[in-house]
C-alpha cells in the first residue's frame, strides 16, 4: 500500500511541475480529438437528422449497422488504416501514415457511429413529435432537418461529449497509425501506455490524472452551459 501512496504523491508532484513537453502532448491530444470530433459532428449530425426525417429503404438496417459499429475495436480500426495508408497500401500516396492526420481519421471512424447513433435517437424522438405540425405547415425537408437540429442543440451537447470522451481516451488505434512518435504523434494516452511500459508509473499516473481532469472540466463546462441555458432550451 505504501508503494501506491508513494506513486500517488510523486505523480501529484509531477502534475504541478507541468513542463512544455507535457503541455505539447496535452495540446496535441486536444487538437487531434477536437478535430476528429468537429469533423464527426459535421458529417454525423446531418446524417442522423436526415435519417430521422426521411423514411428510406434499409433505414432500420442502417441504424442497426451504425449501432454495431459503436463497438468497433480500436485496434482493428488502427490495423485496417495502417494497411490502407501504408506506403505500399492502396492509399499510401497520401503519405499520412505516422501523422496526426491519420490519427484524426482513426478517431473519426471510432466516434462517428457514436455521434450518429445517439443523436439519431434524440432527433428521431423530436421529429416524431414535430412531424405532423411540420407537414401541416408544408415545411420543406431541408428546413425540417434544420429545425430539429436547432431544437435539439442542448441535448446534442451530451452526444458530443460522449464522442469526445471516446476520442480522448482512445489508444489502440492511434498508437498503430500514429506510431507514437515523440513530438509528432505522441498524445496523452499513448504516452501513458509508453511510460507504463518503461516502468515510470508516477509519470503515467500523472498523465492519467491530467486526462481525467480535462475530461471532468469539459463535462463541467457542458453541465454549466446546460444549466444556464435551461430557460433558453424551452424544453
Amino acid at each position: 500500500m505504501s508503494d501506491f501512496s508513494e506513486i500517488l504523491t510523486n505523480s501529484i508532484r509531477l502534475i504541478f511541475s507541468f513542463n512544455t513537453e507535457l503541455s505539447d502532448i496535452v495540446f496535441l491530444s486536444l487538437k487531434v480529438s477536437l478535430s476528429a470530433l468537429l469533423i464527426s459532428c459535421l458529417i454525423g449530425l446531418p446524417i442522423a437528422a436526415y435519417s430521422s426525417v426521411k423514411a428510406f429503404f434499409g433505414k432500420k438496417f442502417f441504424i442497426l449497422l451504425v449501432n454495431s459499429l459503436m463497438g468497433l475495436p480500436p485496434v482493428f480500426v488502427g490495423l485496417v488504416l495502417y494497411i490502407v495508408f501504408s506506403k505500399s497500401g492502396p492509399l499510401g500516396f497520401f503519405e499520412i501514415l505516422y501523422t496526426p492526420t491519420v490519427m484524426v481519421l482513426a478517431q473519426i471512424i471510432l466516434i462517428l457511429p457514436i455521434i450518429i447513433s445517439i443523436s439519431f435517437e434524440t432527433l428521431e424522438s423530436i421529429y416524431f413529435e414535430y412531424e405532423e405540425m411540420l407537414k401541416s405547415l408544408r415545411v420543406s425537408f431541408r428546413d425540417s432537418i434544420l429545425i430539429i437540429l436547432w431544437d435539439a442543440r442542448y441535448c446534442l451537447l451530451t452526444t458530443v461529449l460522449a464522442g469526445l470522451g471516446r476520442a480522448m481516451s482512445e489508444v489502440g488505434a492511434i498508437i498503430i497509425v500514429g506510431g507514437n512518435i515523440a513530438y509528432y504523434t505522441r498524445v496523452m494516452t499513448t504516452t501513458i501506455a509508453l511510460e507504463t511500459s518503461k516502468g515510470n508509473l508516477e509519470l503515467a499516473l500523472a498523465l492519467g490524472t491530467i486526462l481525467i481532469l480535462i475530461s471532468i472540466s469539459l463535462n463541467f463546462i457542458v453541465f454549466m452551459v446546460k444549466h444556464f441555458t435551461k430557460n433558453l432550451s424551452y424544453d
Binding site: S35, T99, V104
Partner: peptide
C-alpha cells in the same frame, strides 16, 4: 482531385 485531397489532409499533418 488527389492534389486537392492531399491539401485537405495537409491541414492536419506535419
Amino acid at each position: 482531385k488527389i492534389i486537392f485531397l492531399k491539401f485537405c489532409f495537409f491541414f492536419f499533418s506535419l
